[in-house]
Amino acid sequence: MPKFAANLTMLFTELPFMQRFEAAAKAGFQAVEYLFPYPFEKKELAAALRANGLQQVLHNLPAGDWDKGERGIACHPDRTGEFREGIAVAIDYATALGCPQLNCLVGKVPAGVSTEAAHKTVVENLRLAARELEAAGLRLLIEPINTFDIPGFFLTRTDQALALIDEVGSSNLRVQYDIYHAQRMEGELGNTLTKNLARIGHIQLADNPGRGEPGTGEINYPWLFQHIDALGYDGWIGCEYKPRVTTVEGLGWREALTKKQ
């Protein structure tokens, strides 16, 4: 059976953030992920993980001004200094929290910047980040995002991510495969996982349409969970979906869909 991590940015949002750790543990999760730890003190987050017996499995590198619509700055040629400063901050937090992997949201191509310039900037930034994370014992991930939810995002498809990894040339860089984003952009979920599992460092889920719980949309999650197990994936699957009602009321999918295997 897959191992599910609660995404605390998306789940238990009826609670203040620091209370979501306890709620996740009470709901049966053994691991958590979330977008950004940086608004909180490292000691506070680490204490919440310990108190609730939770493992942190993922967070993102700093991604610019989220509240103003920025979704990463790795493709911004004029902000390489900020990106590189963010690497050090991210490593500091990940080390304190025992988080083994960090995701880089590469961002939306800025106005007036050519695709070629954005691409060159991404490659250079990822080379540096992959190298510095490897020295710290951490893995770097990149995530394709669908253009329906985030128009203008630079990285949108699995094959593009794999080509980018090849160009960066680091064994410390892998794909964060988000099933929801992949379904919207390309489909072929089973075949893509089969072909590229060795290059996928983390998986996330939500159903489509609506980005709700598994079982609320078109994706055949009972089959997909069985397929992921058969492939031998032993990592975590982050639950990054929007609950239709409350998180706890919607958690019946875990037993309902996985017991069909």
Rank of each mutant, 00 (worst) to 15 (best):
A94R: 00
V109L: 10
T115C: 03
T80G: 08
V113K: 06
Q101C: 04
F83E: 02
I73G: 01
A74E: 02
G69C: 02
G69W: 11
R84C: 03
H119K: 13
G72K: 09
P100T: 05
K68Y: 07
L97P: 05
P110S: 11
G112R: 09
T115D: 12
A94K: 07
D67V: 13
R71G: 07
D78K: 13
D92C: 12
I91Q: 01
I87S: 05
I91G: 01
I87R: 09
H76G: 00
R79S: 04
T115K: 11
R79Y: 05
L102F: 07
A90S: 13
R79N: 02
Q101H: 03
Q101N: 04
K68I: 05
C75G: 11
R84E: 02
A94D: 01
E82C: 00
G86L: 09
A117Y: 02
A74G: 05
L97Y: 07
I73Q: 03
C99R: 04
R84K: 07
V89T: 15
A117T: 06
E70D: 12
V113R: 04
D92I: 01
G72E: 08
Q101T: 07
K120F: 05
A90G: 12
Y93F: 15
A111D: 12
V113D: 03
G81C: 06
E70M: 11
V109W: 01
R84Q: 11
E70F: 10
R84V: 00
T80K: 13
G81K: 14
E116G: 01
V113G: 01
D78G: 05
E116Q: 12
T95C: 04
D92R: 09
V113W: 06
E85S: 13
V109D: 00
C75R: 08
L105Y: 04
F83P: 03
R71V: 14
S114T: 15
K68H: 12
I91L: 09
I87P: 01
A88Y: 09
A90L: 06
